[in-house]
């Protein structure tokens, strides 16, 4: 695994990898996502406990919640790698992850509100620890992007962003714990439990496959942004060389 990462740390080899990985991820991800949407919208029976047809929203809401947490973890890891080893690609990755992570936290909050209205009777609930955790995550992503865009050079933005992302990552468990102390109307965890998933297979399989598809789509988007960033840097370098020659 570490061999693969150091192999890809070279931007040129990364570009070659991304040239094939991006279309494959988009293609496979779209197929899986479309299949899970078909299952969710036409095949899956409505669930009386979860407010009937609104259960179909779960196939967007739950993967987006998992993905936004995974994206923050990815941001923190990329920042750590950049801060310790100064791999340029790690910073390119961190920069690409932030807007996508912010979008997915927003998607999670919006779909959660749409689901909350028929099941809990309210769009928004301050008491719920998971809403609060995702909301804090949204502000962490926003702060990260705002800090990066406020600093003038790329190098400074990368260093400050890495420090902020790492401080945020060590704080996330504390924030999670503090909001968990608040009382919760949310149902308990029902997929990852010691005694196995409590969800019926008819829901679980489309959920997991749809999550896989959306994860592939997200990684394809991150790779696309990273590729665009590398091309921009190469273009800048080329222009600087031309100007130097003339």
């Amino acid at each position: 695994m570490s061999g693969m990462w150091s192999f890809l740390a070279n931007p040129h080899r990364f570009l070659v990898f991304a040239r094939y990985a991006v279309p494959v991820s988009y293609g496979v991800g779209l197929c899986l996502f479309a299949w899970s949407l078909y299952q969710a919208l036409w095949r899956v029976p409505p669930d009386a406990l979860q407010g009937g047809d609104i259960i179909r929203g779960m196939f967007i809401h739950v993967p987006s919640a998992w993905l936004c947490m995974g994206l923050y973890l990815g941001l923190a890891i990329a920042s750590f790698v950049w801060f310790i080893w100064r791999h340029e690609l790690a910073d390119v990755a961190a920069r690409a992850i932030a807007p996508i992570g912010a979008t997915y936290t927003a998607l999670c909050l919006v779909t959660g509100a749409i689901w909350g209205k028929p099941t809990w009777g309210t769009w928004w609930l301050w008491d719920d620890p998971r809403i609060m955790s995702v909301l804090v995550l949204f502000f962490l992503f926003l702060g990260y992007m705002a800090l990066r865009s406020a600093l003038e050079t790329r190098q400074r933005a990368a260093r400050a962003g890495a420090i902020l992302a790492m401080v945020g990552a060590v704080n996330v468990p504390l924030i999670k714990f503090s909001v968990d102390i608040w009382s919760s109307l949310h149902q308990g965890p029902s997929v990852l439990r010691a005694e196995g998933p409590a969800m019926a297979d008819v829901y679980l399989h489309p959920l997991l496959i749809g999550f896989g598809g959306q994860a592939l789509l997200v990684s394809a988007m991150v790779l696309t942004l990273m590729r665009a960033e590398i091309f921009t840097q190469q273009g800048d370098r080329l222009m600087a060389r031309r100007l130097g020659e003339s």
């Binding site: 420090i163 704080n171 503090s178």
Partner: peptide, 27 residues
């Protein structure tokens, strides 16, 4: 400290700091 070199960074500092205030505010 992160925004020390940003001119008129007051709002940026508030945006960066507020998520970290949350556990303290709750407890």
């Amino acid at each position: 400290a992160l925004a020390a070199s940003v001119a008129r960074g007051g709002l940026l500092i508030a945006l960066l700091a507020l998520p970290f205030y949350l556990p303290t505010m709750i407890f």
